[in-house]
């Protein structure tokens, strides 16, 4: 047992009036000194009363406390005070421990409220989004219908334009537009008789050449329209253009016609330029001899 524990027990015995004679006299002597024993004894007494109030005392000590303190009004009051203070402190502790639980519940409810609020807000927000999407959907439906109607109209217009284009192409002296992969060759022909076929300009055609442009040079002018035809020396007609109404022929530039390369037979061919007068009669303006050579 430690000295402190010995001391504590001695002080408690003194307070209970159960100290052995020598021990009591020694403590009486200390109490008479201008020291701190009184405080020590009072603290020991309070500890004793608090232990009694808490029910911590063993039966013997409890009996001694009751014998002393229950015997007098002042003693009972001291015991009552110790019990009251103990109860008040216990209530305080219970309250302090309850606060976190309350705070926890409050926090939980706050979270639920916040979560619920968030869900409500989210719901409202989603409803707003749905409304906006419905409006957009209706707008898109209307717009789709408009676009479909426009598409139909455009297709009709495209078909009409295509028809017009084909018509124009058919009537064009240049003939049909070449395909993207087409290869076009141009040959400039000048009018005049040639001594023989060997002296005529040559047009070499390969399989890759799909279109041929003939630029017919001529000094003729004043006709309402022109027509170009391609013939063999024997008079067989291979191709004939629609009437061409060109602007005034520029000096140094000829009349250009485009015709499929397949039109050309190998050998000597003659291109004939005819003009329609204002009276409606047709006159041969010039002819052009060329020699066609096929390779590949």
């Amino acid at each position: 047992m430690s000295l402190a524990e010995d001391r504590r027990k001695a002080l408690r015995r003194y307070v209970l009036g159960t100290s052995p004679g020598a021990e009591q006299e020694a403590l009486d002597g200390e109490l008479a000194q201008d020291g701190g024993l009184l405080d020590e004894l009072e603290v020991a007494e309070i500890d004793l009363l608090d232990a009694y109030a808490c029910g911590e005392l063993q039966a013997a000590e409890r009996g001694q406390v009751e014998e002393i303190y229950l015997a007098t009004p002042s003693g009972r009051r001291r015991l009552a005070f110790a019990r009251a203070l103990q109860r008040r402190a216990t209530v305080e502790k219970a309250h302090r421990l309850a606060v976190p639980r309350w705070a926890g519940l409050a926090a939980m409810w706050a979270l639920v409220a916040i979560g619920g609020g968030a869900l409500v807000w989210q719901n409202v927000s989603l409803r707003g989004d749905i409304g906006r999407l419905r409006t957009m959907q209706e707008e898109l439906t209307v717009r789709g219908k408009t676009l479909a109607r426009d598409a139909v109209e455009n297709q009709a217009e495209i078909a009409q334009l295509r028809a017009e284009l084909e018509s124009v192409v058919r009537e064009s002296p240049l003939g049909a537009l070449p395909a993207a992969a087409a290869t076009i060759v141009r040959m400039v022909l000048r009018p005049g008789l040639v001594r023989d076929a060997e002296g005529a300009p040559s047009l070499v055609l390969t399989e890759k050449i799909t279109w041929v442009e003939l630029e017919l040079m001529s000094a003729a002018d004043g006709y309402q329209s022109y027509t170009v035809s391609l013939e063999t020396p024997e008079g067989e007609s291979l191709w004939r253009s629609n009437p061409i109404v060109p602007p005034a022929l520029e000096r140094g530039r000829g009349l250009v016609v485009r015709l499929p390369a397949a039109t050309f037979k190998g050998g000597t061919l003659i291109a004939i330029l005819s003009g329609r007068t204002s009276s409606g009669s047709e006159e041969q303006v010039a002819d052009y001899t060329l020699r066609v050579l096929r390779r590949g």
């Binding site: 015991l79 019990r83 008040r88």
Partner: peptide, 15 residues
């Protein structure tokens, strides 16, 4: 019972 009654009274005064 007496000490309990006194304790109750003391508790009210303590408060």
């Amino acid at each position: 019972r007496e000490i309990e009654r006194e304790t109750e009274a003391a508790l009210a005064c303590l408060e």
